[in-house]
Design a protein around this nucleic acid. Structure first.
Lengths: 230, 230
DNA sequence: ACACAAAATGACTGCTGGTCATTTTCTGAC
DNA sequence: GTCAGAAAATGACCAGCAGTCATTTTGTGT
């Protein structure tokens, strides 16, 4: 207890002077190391495939020991999720550009989104692969970890961006008002990423029941393919 | 060489009598054993999860040694694929019933297909899970094996069944004639099974370029959500 | 009773994700 | 400069499992 008081006193002491700056620098360095490990992991995983690559390979590439990796990531799967989050962020950044483009109607944005997706899957094959392996890794990734939470967050952001495109289309009159923006964004994103089937199974992540989304999907298809009555 | 002749002579000898019958019985028994291993694997994998379940567990459940499993399946992944094929066949059988139903228009069949899918994913959760893990296992499953080929075949059958529903709709006038039946069936099935993103990546399995299918998907969505001009 | 083939066994190997006692490096205090 | 304690890093080690293979058991025809 007395010792505790001393410690507290000392740490308060360290508030002034250079000490606090060092703590911050340490934090920055830790973050940098974390990123450099992800860099290494990207190279190794992308070239050998997630399964074949070993943690030792990653450690070597990062010029660290195997044990050190586990100071920064809880497991191989969590490391994969960190890569996935990068993949998602690439998409987010591209989609933001598209959303910003004021020369396009909302409907046209949706059309271009398709092209954006295709382009991504071709020019960033490895990242797209990472994206598709989401389900695999998620199952063995601790829910608590901040990395997993980040992925969830970025994923939500993507859905919001699609919804925003739809919304802008409703605003500018290029898209009907009676559509369910949220459902359609899930459908579009789910179709590209394979998230929709996954969420049907887990029933997580969505306020709307995934089954309902699937129903809506079939409604849309029906609208698109039905023969006009009159 | 001489020995070879003797062998040939003897095996020809065995054509008459009970011997040929025994060979056939053996073949049947082998097939039965194969099925019983899949039975065991289903129970074990479904209850412990694909990752956690071990081949030893399966062997015990099947009342065989571990080594024996490898007389019937090349790998754990191939065994998983065998289960997947069962899952697909359940769907095929249900879809055949739906297709046969002559009281429904083609358009209605497509609508009911959505409900069929949802129902499957809820009542056959484990099989649906197996379905979604296709990609995982495929990568580590020998292309040559007959089991993998079977899965491919059943998968194609499903696409054909959807296409047939669409076709019947065109015939009975409930569905427009200008739709691309093949693409739409891939979209619908891909949306449910996650096969579409997968095939975008691998570019296999489809005569049509997966990217083109994705484009078409966005076209459909646009038709369904666009504001009518006049 | 024998010879041969098919089926089955289970001890063994190689590999890898993850751990942890130990060592090295950093940092502030005296 | 040097000492103590914290933070970072190490790498030998462990446990567990997919897959193998020399050996044994079983089935079959002569």
């Amino acid at each position: 207890m007395t010792a505790g008081h001393f410690l507290t006193a000392r740490s308060q002491n360290t508030v002034n002077g250079a000490i606090m700056g060092i703590a911050e620098r340490r934090e920055r360095e830790k973050e940098k190391r974390r990123e450099s490990i992800i860099d290494a992991a990207e190279k190794v995983f992308f070239s050998s495939g997630f399964e074949n690559a070993t943690m030792l390979d990653v450690a070597k590439k990062a010029e660290l020991s195997k044990g050190a990796l586990y100071l920064y990531f809880q497991s191989k799967n969590e490391l994969c999720m960190a890569i996935l989050n990068r993949s998602l962020k690439i998409l987010v950044s591209q989609m933001k550009n598209l959303l910003r483009n004021s020369e396009l109607t909302g409907l046209e944005k949706i059309g271009n989104l398709g092209k954006l997706f295709i382009n991504f899957s071709q020019s960033q094959k490895d990242h797209y692969k990472a994206l598709l392996s989401y389900r695999e890794h998620k199952e063995h990734c601790p829910d608590n970890g901040r990395i997993f939470q980040n992925c969830k967050k970025t994923n939500k952001e993507i859905n919001s961006l699609i919804a925003a495109m739809l919304h802008s289309g409703v605003e500018d009159g290029s898209i009907r008002q009676d559509i369910d923006q949220e459902k359609i964004s899930i459908i579009i994103w789910g179709n590209f990423s394979g998230f929709l089937p996954s969420s049907i199974l887990t029933e997580e992540n969505l306020k709307i029941a995934p089954a309902e989304v699937m129903n809506y999907f079939f409604e849309l298809v029906k609208i698109a393919i039905a023969k006009e009555k009159e």
